[in-house]
């Protein structure tokens, strides 16, 4: 059991549907993560990703099943599990420092003012907001607001950091910088993190394990992709790594076609033993396959060398 820091055990979420029936968003979902791992869930809208995260956070309850974190079944929200919200969710009447300090005083209620301030300041510095402590959220850019959200989540030194598409509302440049920050912080502190995203590259850059979910309703966890890229991967040369496209193509293929057809084509899917895929060496084969398929479906786009 020690290797399962987070263990989601057979959870389901159903909503009362029209006409007395029930709509099952997902059911019999099993998923586990080790301490210090970074997990990303990818799937189309409506597959229940956010619900899974909310259940992990304790903001939502599963209709069936349980979630065990660090050997204990979770019950409601906890300061052990910090959430970074998609909409940053800062309290607009508090300053940057006030927002982070609010979290700090929530965790350590008997700390005096100076100690709270010093602790909050440490995390504001960590996300690179030194000098903006006394600004209000309305005076910050989207990226800076999300930095405050990250600082607030980190400041309570949680066991797990839960992120619900934290960067999806940001422009590409800011998103890149913040991904770097999050990766640096998670590596430095050995933080366990669970993140929901739509962005395949983000998942490949950040995650150790990528969980692929099929389309809802009735979504299942189809497979777990283990990221074969080295731990010290950098944003700049990520796409040059020989395995990068193997992983990327695998995930994109899943999202484009297999996420729809999975339920119909795979009949022996065992939700308790989801296949773990590690897209490996044969990236050349994948490339060749891709070329073949391009030529097959697009004869006119044949490469100059073959058409000559």
């Amino acid at each position: 059991m020690t290797d399962k820091f987070i263990s989601i055990e057979g959870i389901a979420r159903r909503y009362p549907g029209a006409g007395g029936g029930e709509t099952t968003i997902f059911e019999d979902l099993w998923l586990s993560m080790k301490r210090g791992e970074f997990g990303c869930v990818i799937g189309h809208s409506g597959c229940g990703k956010t619900t899974v995260l909310n259940i992990l956070a304790g903001l939502d309850q599963p209709s069936e099943g349980a979630v065990i974190v660090d050997g204990q079944a979770i019950e409601g929200t906890s300061l052990d599990r910090a959430v970074i919200f998609q909409s940053h969710a800062l309290l607009p009447w508090r300053t940057v420092l006030g927002n982070v300090a609010y979290a700090v005083t929530s965790k350590w209620r008997n700390w005096d003012r100076a100690r709270v301030k010093a602790h909050a300041q440490k995390f504001i510095d960590l996300v690179g907001l030194t000098g903006s402590e006394h600004k209000r959220p309305s005076e910050l850019s989207g990226g800076m607001k999300q930095r405050v959200g990250i600082a607030r989540a980190l400041s309570i030194t949680p066991k797990i950091m839960l992120m619900d598409e934290p960067f999806s509302a940001l422009d590409a440049l800011t998103r890149g910088t913040l991904q770097d920050e999050v990766r640096r912080i998670c590596l430095e502190t050995g933080q366990t993190a669970f993140m929901i995203t739509h962005d395949v590259d983000e998942a490949i850059y950040l995650a150790d394990k990528i969980f692929l979910m099929t389309n809802g309703p009735g979504a299942v966890l189809a497979e777990i992709v283990e990221n074969p890229l080295p731990k010290d991967r950098g944003r700049i040369d990520l796409h040059r790594h020989p395995l990068y496209y193997a992983v990327r193509n695998h995930i994109v293929d899943f999202l484009v076609s297999r996420s729809k057809t999975f339920a119909a084509t795979v009949t022996d899917h065992d939700p308790r033993n989801v296949p773990v895929v590690r897209p490996g060496k044969p990236e050349l084969v994948v490339a060749a396959e891709a070329e073949d398929s391009i030529e097959a479906s697009w004869p006119s786009v044949a490469r100059p060398s073959t058409s000559a």
Partner: peptide
């Protein structure tokens, strides 16, 4: 905002 308060217990 309520959820922020809830996650912070």
């Amino acid at each position: 905002w309520i959820n922020v308060a809830r996650t912070l217990e």
